[in-house]
Design a protein around this nucleic acid. Structure first.
Lengths: 72, 72
DNA sequence: CCGGGTTGTCATATATAAATGACAAATGTA
DNA sequence: TACATTTGTCATTTATATATGACAACCCGG
């Protein structure tokens, strides 16, 4: 894999959607709170299934939630 | 994780783009041919980074390449 | 100020994505 | 038919996504 940084707007969307807690989102997505936390903190590289579930729950497009930036 | 099946249109797009071989795509994406093969065969759940690279190389949106179907 | 809920984070364990090497089945093409 | 390229697949190994349990640091309303 090339050396790029994964970025995401999950936390923003979650708050924008109002009232969701990290734990609730995690539950609806079907992962643990800790996993959700790491994703929001951009500390790792989730699988596409998880991303698709997040997009579904937050009613957003994959492309607006996840993107990459070249390592500068 | 909920019990859903991951679907993708990678093989289609690759052929639509013309002339790409699985191996070439894999190389440009930065994974092995075997990994690319498994993804195209829908035999697993790649990470979002890999998906983003594939989308980039194939000049497609994540959302048109990957989606999920409920287990029926 | 106090207490409940949320969040960040740690350490450990398990599941699985991805790499590597190799080979047979398939596809195309002279 | 014969040969080259591509594709599917296997077995093994390594890296890492995800789970679990626990606890300290933050907020925020009473």
């Amino acid at each position: 894999m090339k050396d790029v940084t994964l970025k995401n707007a999950v936390k923003l969307k979650r708050i924008e959607r109002g009232g969701f807690t990290q734990g609730e989102l995690a539950k609806q997505v079907g992962v643990t709170r800790q996993t959700m936390n790491l994703i929001e903190a951009q500390k790792y590289n989730p699988t596409i299934k998880v991303c698709l579930q997040i997009a579904k729950v937050l009613d957003a497009k994959l492309d607006e939630l996840f993107w990459m930036e070249d390592e500068s």
